[in-house]
Write a protein that binds this DNA or RNA. Structure first.
Length: 394
DNA sequence: ACTCCACAGGAATAACCGGGCG
DNA sequence: CGCCCGGTTATTCCTGTGGAGT
């Protein structure tokens, strides 16, 4: 029985010719040599940074735009070229990139410091001292420096704008050298979180990245297909569908490329000779399920139990879900929380997109949320198998 | 027009954590 | 090491409310 399955897998794997030539190219964070449709942005970023090549200070710069519009790609691309140019001209400049989303303030500073050639202790100093150290190094070396802070909104949301304030004021403390900031943010409303003084000096110049339209997404995908896949491995219709799907959301190139890669995987695994629309559709579902699983996994135990309660609930009212939840708690031997809290959890699960919970009124029979699962029950079951507490429920 | 269900969801407050600091 | 702090989780108490039924 299992032999048959394996035989099937093996024969398919051998019979099928590989479709993907270079997996690296198909990663959504891959930065191609030539960035399509971002010429004017590249030029603008380049122009603000050219003073560095003449040994002068660069203006601070802010890059805004929805996810997958090429902000990071443009920034790192320009940084790369600038570095090459500087070494050719024998000009000393400091360029550093860091993504502040996952890292803490401290690690971000260490990263920036080490990128400009300063070795810092990975722990032990206060962030303030750390920054002072970086500044005095810049001063010593007299080097004009630019820090790129990607997803800067995350940093500010977690740690406030203190560090940005310090950075924007740094030039006043420097006798030699300079420090410029390039901030990158997905969140257009993020400006409101900033101290006006920080905002005005940080956005000396700003560039808004527009979303890609469907034509442009097609172009980007064609390029990736050309370098990432073997010849004729991807049907044109499949490319068009990827572009259309990504375009209908918000012109997200990252999503388009993800769709393409996963579709390629699917097609390859099932031994198809080419990637076609069918595979793209499967890819869309697969990506959706993967994000749902990911979200599900990261839930706290009570939240997981609520998801399960919603799955079991027939009426889908808050009270009904709460009753099921109480039963489940008894079954797994956990102290239940109050209904008020459950209300909050239901709301947060709703915003996560795992369940749907609009408020509706049944008139005489009260007012409640109409709660239903927004994802496949099979996905929930698969994830709950991993957790020892939830696995006992089935 | 009025009632009244079954909650929604705000406010205040307590309990609990993780981590930075002297 | 204990202490404090800010953030999250949870409880208590509460007022508010859309609309089917009367």
């Amino acid at each position: 029985m299992s032999d048959d399955i394996l035989n099937d897998v093996f024969t398919k794997a051998i019979a099928s010719k590989p479709l993907i030539k270079d997996r690296e190219v198909l990663r959504s964070d891959y930065i191609p040599e030539r960035l399509l449709y971002r010429e004017s942005e590249i030029k603008a970023v380049g122009e603000t940074l050219t003073p560095l090549l003449k040994g002068a200070r660069a203006s601070n710069l802010f890059l805004y735009g929805k996810p997958g519009t090429g902000k990071t790609a443009v920034a790192t691309h320009v940084l790369q070229k600038l570095k090459e140019h500087a070494s050719k001209l024998n000009v000393k400049i400091g360029l550093a990139y860091t993504n502040t989303k996952s890292s803490r303030e401290y690690t971000a500073l260490v990263q920036l410091g080490s990128a400009i050639g300063l070795t810092l202790p990975p722990t032990g100093l206060a962030s303030g001292d750390l920054f002072t150290k970086i500044l005095s190094y810049i001063n010593e070396q007299g080097v004009n420096t630019v820090f790129v802070l990607d997803e800067i909104d995350e940093l500010v949301k977690r740690h406030g704008d203190k560090i940005l304030y310090e950075m924007t004021r740094a030039n006043a403390r420097l006798k030699r050298g300079s420090l410029g900031i390039i901030g990158i943010s997905n969140d257009l409303n993020f400006k409101e979180l900033l101290d006006p003084r920080v905002l005005s000096s940080l956005s000396e110049e700003e560039i808004v990245f527009p979303p890609y339209n469907v034509q442009e997404l097609r172009g980007i995908l064609m390029e990736r297909v050309r370098t990432g896949f073997y010849e004729n491995a991807v049907k044109e219709a499949a490319i068009n569908l990827c572009a259309a799907m990504a375009g209908s959301e918000h012109g997200d190139a990252r999503r388009a490329v993800d769709l393409l890669r996963v579709a390629g995987d699917v097609a390859e695994r099932e031994g198809a000779g080419t990637v076609d629309e069918k595979h793209v559709r499967i890819a869309e579902k697969k990506i959706e399920q993967d994000t749902a699983s990911e979200a599900l996994r990261s839930l706290a135990i009570h939240e997981k139990l609520i998801v399960y309660s919603v799955m079991l609930s027939e009426r889908g009212s808050t009270g009904d879900v709460y009753d099921r939840y109480m039963e489940i708690c008894k079954k797994v031997g956990l102290e239940p929380v109050t209904q008020r809290r459950i209300g909050m959890i239901i709301s947060s699960l709703d915003t996560l997109g795992l369940i749907s919970a609009p408020v509706i009124s049944h008139g005489r029979y009260g007012r409640t949320k109409k709660i239903s699962l927004a994802i496949q029950p099979s996905v929930v079951k698969n994830v709950f198998k991993e957790d020892p507490t939830t696995s006992t429920l089935l």
